[in-house]
Amino acid sequence: MNKQEIGTFLLRIMLGATFFMHGLSKFQGGLDNISGWFQSIGIPGFMAYVVATIELAGGLALIAGLGTRVISVLLVFIMAGAIIYVKLPAGFMGNEEGTGFEMDLVLMVIALHLVLNGSRLMSLDSKLPTNKKGQDSKSIAS
């Protein structure tokens, strides 16, 4: 175990907890309300259900370390959408009309880090059998 693995583990846990809480708040606030708001900004209403589910279930999956790279790719797309469709007009730090996209960008970069590097420390992914390149040929040879 090295410092990079520990750092990536901490990023995975915090990203998972953050998205879990955001997904939970969408469900608690009423997905019909979120769906209506999505429609008001030009996004199909059903996407509220998709986003909320990815945030809630994906957050839990990240905390557990299950499907880290796949979930993180989905979160990169969600954050890109949030920046482009909602936060970009307010700028990086925000203005009197709304908050900026600095936090969304940080979350997106953390998710991108997990896409590129994975996070196997204390993860369910590390317990699953994997088919690494060359492993089959070694098994057959022995």
Rank of each mutant, 00 (worst) to 15 (best):
Q28M: 15
T8K: 12
E102M: 00
F19K: 04
F27E: 02
S35L: 11
F27N: 13
A90W: 08
K26R: 09
A82C: 07
L75M: 14
E96L: 10
I84F: 15
I13V: 15
N33M: 12
G59Y: 01
D104T: 12
G58R: 04
I78N: 15
I6S: 05
L56M: 08
K127H: 13
Y85N: 15
I63P: 13
F46H: 08
M21I: 07
S139D: 04
A82G: 15
G30Y: 06
V109F: 12
G36V: 00
I140A: 11
F9N: 04
K132H: 03
A90Q: 15
L128P: 07
A52R: 08
L114N: 01
F20P: 13
G7I: 01
G7S: 15
M108H: 09
L128G: 11
A111H: 12
T99K: 14
V70H: 01
L60C: 14
R12D: 01
I71E: 00
G94C: 11
Y49S: 05
W37R: 02
A52M: 05
G65Q: 07
F27R: 04
H22D: 01
F38G: 04
L105N: 04
Y85L: 09
L24E: 04
G65I: 02
I43W: 14
L24R: 14
V109M: 15
R69A: 03
A141Q: 14
G42F: 13
L10P: 12
P89Q: 12
F77C: 12
I43P: 04
R12P: 06
S142W: 01
R120F: 01
F19V: 02
V70Q: 06
K138H: 02
L74T: 00
D125M: 06
F27S: 07
N95R: 05
S126D: 13
G100W: 05
Q4H: 11
N131I: 02
M1I: 02
F101L: 05
G65W: 06
Q135E: 14
A52S: 15
L62K: 04
G118P: 10
R12K: 07
L31N: 13
S137Y: 00
T130F: 06
G58C: 10
R12Q: 03
I78R: 08
A52Y: 08
V73A: 01
Y49K: 06
D32A: 14
G67W: 08
M122K: 12
Q4A: 13
L10I: 05
N33D: 07
S72A: 11
F101P: 10
L105E: 01
L15M: 08
K127S: 11
L24I: 01
V106T: 13
I6E: 07
G98R: 14
I71P: 05
W37T: 05
L31M: 13
L66T: 00
G81D: 02
P44W: 08
S119Q: 04
L56K: 02
E96W: 12
I34D: 05
V86Q: 13
K132C: 00
V115E: 04
L75H: 06
G29Y: 11
T99I: 11
L116H: 04
G94L: 12
S123D: 08
V73C: 13
G65Y: 02
I63N: 09
R120E: 14
